[in-house]
Design a protein around this nucleic acid. Structure first.
Length: 415
RNA sequence: GUGGGUGUAGCUCAGUUGGUUAGAGCGCUGGUUUGUGGAGCCGGAGGUCGCGGGUUCGAAACCCGUCACUCACCCCA
């Protein structure tokens, strides 16, 4: 039998309801915070990602779905949303438009990783980007939106981790200090960290191997080495969060993986997921636009892994469809009349269905029950002859005779 | 890319120290006397026991390989 591709998931009708709810909450919340939706392509020139995400990151080195176009140019399925948004913003000069500086997106991303709980090769993200200002209050706005989004979905036991990784210049100083600190410990660290020591020493800090965690307890903190402006910015963000009573935890080990991040970084975790506990994360990326040869543009954003969120969503939170009216038509005159009524109900924006297979009233009512209909409209030859139908409440079994021409009216005015 | 776990009906799972036609519950479907659903009762369909080798008189059970799923490492949302 043909199967779906590894790491890809079908969203079946039952779960689709949940996704609709999730997406509706995301759109509503983002819109309320002044963000406008942007829809960008699902693939781009490979160069865009190589330049923005960072050439030495795992994503670019081994996780991208890259393929040649027919003319030979290299294309890549988007592994994340920020790069594409930045490209679109530059291409369409959206920075000049005051209404287009706060953007959000929703859609699938692709990374060739080994699938695991909460990790798929095609996954969906909800993300926002606030462009053009480095006022710490915009950081607070973005983080608050992320926090409130999860609250609106009814998620519990979340932790907001926050840190500042400074500017690239701040980091240069700090990396020297960190290396100095790590050098004597090097023999104790895991093999991975010994490599990180050379390639990207910051990553040693978020290593999960217990020995490494213990060894680096006394490591110098990056925030102690930030420039004055970075420090002021960071504290302004923290004060802003406190003023809005958003609880946070400063996490000195929080290092973002993508190269474009600078200064404020944050993530929200849930203890109810497995290893992939981060449901939303983001940060400031003041250098990205210049890396894409655009004007220097401070910016901050986040991305939410929607599959991970669905794992935390309780079922009663999903939106329910309108009540269903089942049209049970039978008999040589009743059945065609009932089919016309079905059409009329739908035109009147009433959710209605029938079962063409059912021949007897018994079979039709059974279908109505299985489809979960709230009401059945019974229309046999007798009813057809008298221009009426029986409106049956499937829960209470109460039935009433209604004139056919009044039935949509009757339903609309309440039952 | 590296480890561990698991593959029996649409779903959740039994299957006894290898032994003959592989089972249950749920679901699906038909009937229960002809114009009233759910429950009950009776019946039915549905399985290459993941796949390929091997051991054996005999394998769903044991061995090897392989694939898939899954969890974890890694990485990240």
């Amino acid at each position: 039998m043909l199967r779906s591709v590894k790491g890809l998931k079908d969203i079946l009708p039952q779960q689709a309801m949940q996704w609709q709810h999730l997406e509706a909450v995301a759109r509503t919340m983002a819109t309320h915070y002044g963000f406008s939706e942007i829809r960008i392509p699902i693939f781009e020139f490979t160069e865009l990602y190589a330049r923005s995400i960072g050439g030495t990151t795992d994503i670019v080195e081994k996780e991208m779905y890259t393929f040649p176009d027919r003319d030979g140019s290299s294309l890549t399925l988007r592994p994340e949303g920020t790069a594409g948004v930045a490209r679109a913003v530059l291409e369409h000069k959206l920075l000049d438009s005051p209404t287009s500086r706060k953007l959000f997106y929703l859609g699938p991303m692709f990374r060739h990783e080994r699938p695991q709980a909460g990790r798929y090769r095609q996954f969906h993200q909800f993300g926002v980007e606030a462009l053009g200002t480095d006022d710490p209050l915009i950081d607070v706005e973005v983080i608050t939106l992320l926090w409130e989004f999860f609250l609106a979905l009814g998620l519990k036991d979340l932790t907001l981790h926050i840190n500042s990784i400074g500017t690239p210049v701040d980091r240069e100083n700090y990396i020297l200090k960190l290396k100095e600190f790590l050098t004597p410990l090097l023999p104790n660290l895991c093999g991975n960290c010994q490599r990180r020591y050379l390639a990207n020493p910051l990553r040693v800090l978020d290593c999960k191997v217990p020995i490494c965690q213990e060894s680096t307890v006394g490591a110098p903190h990056l925030i102690d080495d930030l420039s004055e402006t970075s420090t002021i910015h960071f504290h302004a963000v923290l004060n802003g969060l406190s003023a809005l009573e958003i609880p946070y935890t400063i996490n000195h080990r929080l290092v973002r993986g993508l190269d474009y991040y600078s200064r404020t970084t944050f993530e929200i975790t849930s203890p109810h997921l497995g290893a992939q506990s981060t449901i939303g994360a983001g940060g400031r990326y003041d250098g990205l636009f210049q890396a894409l040869q655009g004007p220097a543009t401070p910016a901050i954003g986040f991305a939410v892994g929607l599959e991970r969120v669905t794992l935390l969503l309780s079922e009663d939170r999903t939106s329910k469809p309108a009540p269903l009216f089942f049209v049970a038509g039978f008999g040589p005159r009743g059945k065609p009349r009932a089919f016309r009524l079905l059409h009329e109900l739908r035109q009147a924006k009433i959710r209605a269905d029938t079962d063409h297979k059912g021949t007897s009233l018994k079979a039709l009512l059974r279908s109505a029950d299985k489809l979960g209909a709230e009401y059945s409209i019974i229309l046999g030859d007798d009813e057809s002859d008298s221009h009426t139908a029986l409106l049956r409440n499937m829960h209470t079994k109460a039935q009433e005779i209604v004139k056919l021409e009044e039935i949509t009216q009757r339903i609309h005015t309440g039952l």
